[in-house]
Computed example of a mutant assay.
Amino acid sequence: MSSAQPSPEKLVAELRDRAHALGFDSFGIAPADARPDLPEKLNAALAAGWHGDMDWMEETAARRGSPTGMWPEARSVIVLGINYGPESDPLAILGEKSLGTISVYARNRDYHEIIKGKLKDMAGLLARRSGAEVKVFVDTAPLMEKPLAEAAGLGWQGKHTVLVSREFGSWLFLGAILTSADLPGDIKHEESCGSCTRCLDICPTNAFPAPFQLDARKCLAYLTVEHKDQIPLVFRAPMGNRIYGCDDCLAVCPWNKFASVSREAKLRAREELERPALADLVQLDDAGFRALFSGSPIKRIGLARFLRNVLIAIGNSADESLIPLVEARLDAEESIVRGAAIWALRRLAPDRADDLRLAYLARESDSSVAAEWTGDI
């Protein structure tokens, strides 16, 4: 080691200080090969089909199973977390059926943008001080951050599969730096859920086949964000007014009592996304959608999928004042929007839906949308 390079211990201390200065709340290091069990677990989940139509998970399985599978030169992984604990109970709005519920993580700026710049700063420091190679990841590459965060001592994967921290509960954004440097690792965090099953019991769609296992095909976070087609019928009523994501399993975690509101101003929720009215959201056009969700992860799903979610929520609202706004979407260009509008109308005004059915069926070319009118879904 040249005299210009600090010892690994001093380098880690310097990195920890820099992480804190940048606004990170958690910092840990693990050997790149710390989780040899991951390929087997990943392959079992893929074989069960729990990834739904997230084909990229299967396509990248060989790399996803291990950091060294993705980058053979990797020797250490630095995992960092930012607390995004909410100011109020995110489940309270579920009872206000004419409002839309947006997952806490999506109520502020896109966390990818927030964290990536900070990680690059950290990685640059590491490269300059050690001469090692570095790669930065923020949930956009085949890297399993949560189990690596557990190995790095940040917390443990709870029964809901989300990382749980003693200091921040279930509210941590994660990012990682892979490096060719051999750095001293932290102590792996032991699972500390005990006998608690609150996260499993509250799930509105029974998406957990067993503790520590998640079937994404039944998860509202997956269905409202990743799923590109119509929401399966069995999950529409349980969806309630959740229009983007689902916080139920995170919000009931007892460890959240230690999670303070984020000290990072950039992670504070945008007021207009905390209690949005379904009546306003369903009237958005493409320009309005892009303007409202500028800088938000919600923009990535596009207007059509978003309107699909909003219309399902309207169908669950029992708010008959929204019927004209639903009818305005029966002629939407996108089939998933038309289908969701039909379902919402049949829920709010079944007689009105019957009156309109034949006229709309006569000009409907999409069989899935026609099935919404006839009830053959």
Results as ranks from 00 to 15, higher is better:
Glu133Ile: 00
Cys199Glu: 02
Glu9Cys: 03
Ile312Glu: 13
Gln5Arg: 14
Leu281Glu: 02
Ser260Pro: 07
Phe168Ile: 05
Gly28Arg: 04
Glu59Gln: 15
Pro238Met: 13
Ile177Ala: 04
Pro67Cys: 12
Thr140Cys: 09
Lys299Val: 15
Gly100Ala: 07
Leu119Tyr: 02
Glu274Leu: 01
Gln157Thr: 14
Lys146Asp: 07
Asp139Trp: 04
Ser26Val: 09
Asp366Phe: 02
Gly375Phe: 08
Pro204Lys: 05
Gly158Tyr: 00
Lys116Ile: 14
Lys116Tyr: 15
Gly288Leu: 07
Cys199Phe: 05
Leu148Ala: 11
Leu126Gly: 09
Ala251Leu: 04
Asp319Gly: 05
Gly169Thr: 03
His189Phe: 12
Leu42Lys: 10
Glu14Tyr: 08
Gly65Trp: 00
Leu125Trp: 13
Tyr244Glu: 03
Gly315Asn: 12
Asp139Arg: 01
Ser368Met: 15
Ala106Val: 08
Ser180His: 04
Arg107Met: 00
Ser88Cys: 11
Gly81Thr: 06
Ala152Asp: 02
Glu145Lys: 05
Asp247Glu: 05
Gly124Asp: 07
Glu320Asn: 14
Asp25Pro: 01
Gln5Glu: 12
Phe24Asp: 04
Leu267Asn: 09
Val234Ala: 15
Arg305Phe: 05
Ile336Trp: 08
Ala13Met: 03
Val12Leu: 07
Tyr84Pro: 07
His189Pro: 04
Gly117Met: 06
Pro6Glu: 07
Arg347Ile: 10
Ala149Ile: 03
Thr224Arg: 08
Ala269Pro: 09
